[in-house]
Amino acid sequence: MYDIRIESIDLSTNDRLKVESFLSTFNLLLDKDVEHTIVARYEGEIIGTCSYSGKVLKCFAVKEGYQEQGIASRLITHITNQLFDRGIYSSFIFTEPKNITLFKRLNYREVQSVDEVVLLEGGMSNIKKYVEEMFKDSDLNKNKKAALVMNCNPFTLGHRYLIERAAGENDEVIVFVVEEDRSLFPFEVRKNLVSIGIEDLKNVHVLSGGSYIISSNTFPSYFLRQEDMRMNAYAKLDAEIFGRYFSSVFNIERRYVGTEPYCNMTKQYNEALHSILPKYGIDVMEVDRLSKEDKPISASEVRRLIKADKFHIIKNLVPKVTYEFLMSNEAKLIIEKIKRSDSSH
């Protein structure tokens, strides 16, 4: 039996380059958002590695010749125990479909797969129970509903217009706010701005998106290097999960989206919804986005204007609640962060 050690590494040292070099032999990348990495070493050489970002395990590989030595199990167990120590009892893995059997042997369960990628869950995760609990906690009934999934980074008049349109065309509407905190505006801030901003729309319910409405910011890039391929896989997987699990429990028959004249990623996402959701009995309602001076209102434009200190323009692009928040002391740290960033998230 090999004398194999499992250890954590400091990603701020040269060990990061060693992990990147090791992963490159599998045509894999070390994702930029990785928070922690462990490696398996034999006689000082890296023969396996695994990382996590939030609840997502990623950048997993074991050197050929060592793959029957139980190293995969040791790496997963080790990193799962580290998550337990942080109070995280559920974990997820995005991987290529060819790896499903490997991870199922390690007690991971398949949530959904598409051609390019499969999502698996482990630990206390259980998507069916999770979505049922979401519905139970929402106090909603089983009436037919329309739904929107929004990041709202931040909440704009464009978002408000789309929600208002759905509210006028349906008896009940749910707005799922993406929960993953990878946006410049924190989740609680984003959800609060939406909730206050649509208080007058009595048939609209604002809910947390939870762990299974996927953010494009957390979708892995380490085995899908080409951006267009990655975004297409993300869009299809997210649409399948929404259709398969959310629509039946919440009785959703319509999903509203805004048209996308500029962002190719959002355009691909809309195309995936049109392609996939109808098979789950969901009509996709694509609405022309609200424009100001012939330019569609977008959260990315608002962030750009924040960076440029053009709050006099922003005032005409966001609801009162968003503008008042931006003028408050609470927003100062967020605004500073936006000015330091590339404003892409």
Results as ranks from 00 to 15, higher is better:
residue 2 Y to T: 10
residue 3 D to P: 08
residue 7 E to V: 13
residue 13 T to L: 13
residue 14 N to Y: 15
residue 14 N to S: 14
residue 16 R to S: 13
residue 19 V to E: 01
residue 21 S to V: 14
residue 22 F to T: 03
residue 25 T to Y: 15
residue 26 F to R: 00
residue 37 T to A: 06
residue 37 T to M: 07
residue 48 G to L: 11
residue 49 T to W: 14
residue 52 Y to S: 01
residue 52 Y to V: 03
residue 54 G to N: 13
residue 55 K to C: 08
residue 57 L to I: 12
residue 60 F to G: 00
residue 61 A to L: 08
residue 63 K to T: 06
residue 64 E to Y: 15
residue 65 G to I: 14
residue 69 Q to N: 11
residue 69 Q to L: 15
residue 69 Q to A: 13
residue 76 I to W: 05
residue 81 N to I: 12
residue 83 L to A: 03
residue 83 L to C: 04
residue 85 D to W: 09
residue 87 G to M: 14
residue 90 S to W: 12
residue 96 E to I: 09
residue 97 P to R: 12
residue 99 N to Y: 15
residue 100 I to M: 07
residue 101 T to Q: 07
residue 105 R to E: 10
residue 107 N to C: 09
residue 108 Y to C: 02
residue 109 R to T: 08
residue 113 S to C: 10
residue 113 S to E: 11
residue 116 E to P: 06
residue 118 V to N: 01
residue 121 E to P: 04
residue 123 G to P: 08
residue 130 Y to Q: 01
residue 130 Y to A: 01
residue 132 E to M: 10
residue 132 E to P: 02
residue 137 D to C: 09
residue 141 N to Q: 09
residue 144 K to H: 15
residue 148 L to N: 03
residue 154 P to F: 15
residue 155 F to T: 04
residue 155 F to W: 07
residue 158 G to M: 07
residue 161 Y to N: 10
residue 168 G to C: 11
residue 170 N to C: 11
residue 171 D to A: 11
residue 173 V to Q: 07
residue 176 F to A: 05
residue 176 F to Y: 14
residue 177 V to D: 03
residue 183 S to Y: 15
residue 189 V to M: 03
residue 191 K to V: 10
residue 195 S to G: 04
residue 202 K to H: 12
residue 203 N to Q: 09
residue 204 V to M: 07
residue 205 H to D: 04
residue 206 V to S: 02
residue 210 G to T: 13
residue 214 I to F: 10
residue 216 S to W: 10
residue 216 S to R: 12
residue 217 N to W: 15
residue 219 F to H: 03
residue 224 L to P: 04
residue 228 D to E: 14
residue 229 M to S: 04
residue 230 R to L: 15
residue 241 I to P: 00
residue 244 R to M: 14
residue 247 S to M: 10
residue 251 N to C: 11
residue 255 R to M: 14
residue 259 T to L: 04
residue 259 T to G: 01
residue 259 T to I: 08
residue 262 Y to N: 03
residue 263 C to T: 08
residue 265 M to K: 08
residue 265 M to N: 06
residue 266 T to C: 02
residue 269 Y to H: 09
residue 273 L to M: 12
residue 275 S to C: 07
residue 276 I to Y: 11
residue 276 I to W: 12
residue 277 L to P: 06
residue 281 G to P: 09
residue 283 D to L: 11
residue 285 M to Q: 08
residue 285 M to F: 12
residue 288 D to T: 10
residue 288 D to A: 04
residue 290 L to E: 04
residue 294 D to P: 02
residue 298 S to P: 02
residue 299 A to T: 08
residue 300 S to A: 07
residue 302 V to G: 00
residue 305 L to P: 03
residue 305 L to R: 08
residue 306 I to G: 00
residue 307 K to G: 03
residue 311 F to Q: 01
residue 314 I to P: 02
residue 318 V to P: 05
residue 318 V to K: 04
residue 319 P to I: 15
residue 320 K to G: 04
residue 325 F to Y: 15
residue 325 F to Q: 00
residue 335 I to P: 05
residue 337 K to V: 08
residue 338 I to M: 03
residue 339 K to E: 08
residue 343 S to K: 05
residue 344 S to A: 10
